[in-house]
Amino acid sequence: MYVRIEDLYFGYTKNTHVLHNVSFAMQEGEIVAILGSSGSGKSTLLRLLSGLEMPSKGRIEVNEETLCSANTFVECEKRHVGMVFQDYALFPHMDVIKNIAFGLKHLSKDAKKGRVQAMLKLINMEEKSHAFPHELSGGQQQRIALARALAPSPDILLLDEPFSNLDEDLKTKIRHELRSIMKKTAMTAIFVTHDYDDALDIADRICYLEDGRIVHEEVIKRS
């Protein structure tokens, strides 16, 4: 298994638990949706996977590397995990190119440029490369955030409610777009949502999260 999450427990304060005994596994290239209502612990789960929070118990393995266990904890900047935040959090003082290039500091100047161009092409936004975030629409901001997260070729991509800030009529189009981008890059991805239609359109599999517990799993059959 490419991703293995075992027996994860977490609470923001002592003696309270937001997540209980969360376990699941994923194959490489699989897209899993975590579906749950508001406050069920979806964002918290992503924060644990990305290393922004430390679980009180449990184990996380990605691509044969133990990111977190009883005696290891890999810091978030060393995890090769990409994440798209709920409101994108694009850096407002950088233009599109600088935003996407932010995670590529290990590359040479030319390689960086090439990678940024490839990302812009992937999300189909070459013409906006010098725009600043405040000059972009919500949908465009989201695609830039996606490109920024994908640029360093993370082992796994996490998306937090990627559609919650978008207009209803844009959603269907963007859902398909998102799925096609992720499949094109063969990206292993987890995204969380409270909307069943989102999950149905994008995911290969849905995990239902209720009060911090995974209560049910459902495989989506696609023709």
């Binding site: 922004l52 978030c76 900047e77 959090a89 850096f91 003082h93 995670g103 997260a149």
Partner: peptide, 29 residues
């Protein structure tokens, strides 16, 4: 200042110093 900016920078591989200089400080401008 929302933590999302610094957290994003760190997830993109920036250490504490780089995060402060490239993200936190410019946003304070």
């Amino acid at each position: 200042q929302s933590a999302a900016f610094s957290e994003n920078a760190r997830l993109l591989g920036a250490g504490k110093v780089r995060t402060f200089i490239r993200v936190v400080l410019p946003l304070l401008r």
